[in-house]
Design a binder for these strands. Structure first.
Lengths: 244, 244
DNA sequence: ACCTGAACACCGTTCAAGT
DNA sequence: ACCTGAACACCGTTCAAGT
């Protein structure tokens, strides 16, 4: 029977408001009370600690880190998917809040791609997460940011919807394509080697000269530049008047 | 102790070449021997039976359907992920083999988007699968098909790589965005209702008039048309000469 | 209200053993 | 070579019970 014992971990038991209270007069609350915010922070820490794809985040790992039971976590968070979505949005939010102030709409749209790729570099698991569900906060945030810039470009109605949908799809697709690639732990040399192998793999798949050409081109580019080139291409398409 | 008993399921035991043989003279092989092909077919059947996201495919469900043990399946297939990739490619392959013969490159590129969206309509789980891994056969197939058409358009080198990367990313992103949307079980009315709800949800998220505008536009469009519009926009961008 | 922890119903993968 | 099935090391979620 342990009462008001102080664990050497992150938690104090049977204590409140920073003051030790007699166990009989207070209910059993932790001083560092759980909250959705604290849980999301722990989730991000777990995801960041492991390289790439996000499989590291597990309810049980969360339990050990927060020194609590599953029920406590489920009291603040409805589901693990919700938690993943919250983690992704929390990481993306600050990057995106800086964007609206960009002077030129086209630059702001390029900044969207840059923000996402830089977030992936720091938190590789975001790549997989963003393509998981189209209604999650982070994706809607991307949509909205793009939409606002398109409006500044003078687009309205169907044209705005088409342009917005195209840019959003492109950005998410880039993430899907490059997100699972070489991780942040790779140096430039490892990166080149990875892409080299990939290019050769492609080339071997069939002797097609077209594929070989493209594969060898890809080897030279880095993800971010590739993505920015794509944004520029789409911006040219937006600027061009529909032919029909 | 059962020998050469005929199960009423899909399998016969201790029999071979359609002829019942004495158990003592033959080893214990099944007449409908397992093969990667048979396993992939079963996987597709399981995935198709369940609506949407592909969580239905499970080793244990595969075991019951094929009336076998886990070891038997792992003898033909290295991992469940490989199986998912094989299932997706088997479904996509026939759709894509028809495309190369399209007369006009631009039409062929539009046909790529159409092929993918029609595959998703018939097999909703493909949406999630395609965004899972960038090196899976189905994705490489998409890449190659697009690459070949871009070559027919006269693109080479860096321009081909940028255009190919952009189109592929866009198509995969569309899939990520719309793949998890209303399932094939929805009628047109349900669809409208779903998108209506989505538009309102977006609008509520903040009072931003830009977002409301775009959301209400999206409500009118269907996935395929949206995707084709995007392809056209990108094709205009490809046709336009780079400004720098 | 907030938390505990056992219980439930699952997963994918491995591997010694059989024929 | 091909298959069996037990065992292993996990999952997310629920819920009666505690304070």
């Amino acid at each position: 029977m342990e009462q008001c014992s102080i664990k050497l971990g992150a938690t104090l038991h049977f204590c409140q408001d920073g003051v030790m209270t007699s166990p009989s007069s207070r209910s059993a609350r932790r001083i560092d009370a759980l909250s959705k915010e604290r849980i999301v922070d722990a989730a991000i820490a777990i995801l960041d600690a492991d390289e790439s794809d996000g499989a590291a985040l597990t309810l049980r790992r969360l339990m050990t880190r927060l020194e609590t039971g599953s029920g406590a976590i489920y009291h603040h968070v409805a589901t693990m998917d919700e938690l993943r979505a919250a983690a992704a949005d929390q990481v993306l939010r600050p990057q995106f809040e800086a964007i609206s102030s960009e002077s030129e709409p086209n630059d702001a749209l390029r900044a969207v791609a840059r923000a996402i790729f830089e977030s992936i570099r720091a938190h590789p698991w975001i790549g997989v997460q963003l393509t998981r569900s189209p209604l999650q906060d982070a994706v809607i945030r991307i949509w909205k940011t793009i939409g606002i810039q398109l409006e500044r470009l003078g687009l309205r109605g169907a044209a705005a919807a088409t342009a917005g949908s195209t840019l959003t799809s492109f950005v998410l697709g880039s993430v899907a394509q490059f997100g699972a690639g070489p991780s942040r732990h790779m140096g430039a040399a490892d990166r080149r080697e990875y892409l080299e192998t990939l290019a050769q793999e492609w080339a071997q798949l069939d002797g097609d000269i077209v594929v070989q050409d493209i594969a060898s081109q890809l080897r030279e580019h880095d993800d971010l530049q590739q993505s920015l080139d794509g944004v520029d291409l789409i911006l040219r398409g937006i600027a061009a008047r529909p032919t029909s």
